[in-house]
């Protein structure tokens, strides 16, 4: 795991996740214009009770807020999948 992924994980710990997977997808974007400033592309799968009752926009805002300045310094693009523990259960039933 890259140290950037670890940094992202550390920041997102503030949301008390029960599941958290950070994937560095920067290698998929080498040579793309957005990759030239050296920041990375990441995907976050996060499951936290704190998302309950929040619409997707609010959940993404919570993730961005927890990441703070990393969005400026290390992250160029971020895919976010933010679920509550209940939602992961209903997904498994499908």
């Amino acid at each position: 795991m890259s140290s950037r992924s670890e940094l992202i994980q550390q920041r997102l710990a503030a949301l008390s996740p029960v599941e958290l997977t950070v994937t560095d997808e920067s290698h998929k974007h080498v040579g793309h214009a957005g990759a030239q400033d050296g920041r990375g592309h990441f995907h976050v799968h996060i499951v936290a009770a704190a998302f309950a009752g929040k619409p997707p926009l609010g959940r993404h805002r919570m993730v961005y807020a927890a990441l703070g300045d990393l969005m400026e310094t290390d992250i160029h693009a971020l895919g976010i999948e933010a679920l509550t523990p209940e939602e992961t259960k209903s997904q498994e039933l499908k």
């Binding site: 997707p56 926009l57 993404h60 969005m71 400026e72 693009a77 895919g79 976010i80």
Partner: peptide, 17 residues
């Protein structure tokens, strides 16, 4: 903090995801 940003009726709906 990121693009794209989609707006409907002046309100931010969100990004790609």
């Amino acid at each position: 903090p990121t693009y794209p940003q989609l707006y409907i009726n002046g309100e931010l709906v969100g990004g790609c995801d």
